[in-house]
């Protein structure tokens, strides 16, 4: 008998009393009671609590804000599907970083990514109650590796993509896409259970929320 068959037989035997399947009570909150302004305010509060840097900016000023944050950086990576107009103020200006584009045609290596100052991505959705930003590998967010190796991650999030509670985000996401849920910069509570920021993931998380 294969291990699989063996284990399946053990399970069947273990369940010989045929325990009943309970109906799952879903009385918890599955949708938002908050206005868009309240969700935005809550997300900002939560992210700041995690020591992320948060900027609320009108959508048309996205590029200017990005240029301001990246002044002094030498090189960044962006996924190939990042909206071009977000980068319009970055190109060819003196003092602006060189932009590497990660695409299916040209995938940056780990070593290349490690040499860069920052990564700029969009986001799929965000949960205000928990301060969580979800990336799902779409073309404007890129492969998981690009938002991981550089030490600084700048996320541009559309305010219209903010939901209040986790079930709303789950409903918007597709399970089978490779996902990373991010709630602040990398952190640890492993020494005396006190949280400190900055371990292996990006040590700086900047979030630009576009209104």
């Amino acid at each position: 008998m294969s291990a699989r068959e063996d284990i399946m037989a053990r399970i069947a035997s273990a369940l010989h009393d045929a325990p009943e399947t309970p109906v799952v009570p879903r009385e918890y909150r599955r949708s938002s009671n908050m206005s868009a302004e309240q969700r935005l305010e809550q997300l900002v509060d939560r992210l700041q609590d995690y020591k992320a840097n948060v900027f609320v900016t009108p959508a048309e000023e996205a590029s200017a804000k990005l240029a301001e944050l990246l002044a002094g950086s030498t090189s960044i990576v962006v996924p190939h599907g990042l909206p071009q107009d977000w980068l319009s103020k970055l190109t060819d200006d003196a003092g602006m970083p060189a932009i590497e584009v990660d695409s299916p045609e040209r995938r940056l290596t780990v070593a290349e990514l490690d040499a860069l100052d920052a990564v700029v991505t969009a986001a799929a959705t965000a949960v205000s109650e928990t301060g969580t930003i979800m990336l799902d590998g779409s073309a404007d967010q890129g492969r998981r590796i690009i938002s991981l190796v550089p030490d600084r991650h700048i996320v541009l999030l559309r305010a219209s993509d903010i939901v209040e509670v986790l079930p709303e985000a789950i409903a918007r996401l597709e399970a089978t896409r490779p996902q990373t849920w991010i709630s602040g910069p990398s952190a640890t509570s492993d020494i005396e259970l006190e949280r400190v920021e900055g371990v292996h993931g990006p040590r700086t998380l900047d979030v630009i929320i576009l209104t």
């Binding site: 995938r107 109650e129 301060g131 492969r143 998981r144 399970a175 490779p178 709630s183 910069p185 990398s186």
Partner: peptide, 17 residues
């Protein structure tokens, strides 16, 4: 309220991971 990172993967994604 939420841990800093959660990763989800389903089998193999071409070019990612």
């Amino acid at each position: 309220r939420m841990n800093p990172y959660t990763s989800l993967w389903t089998g193999v994604t071409e070019g990612d991971g």
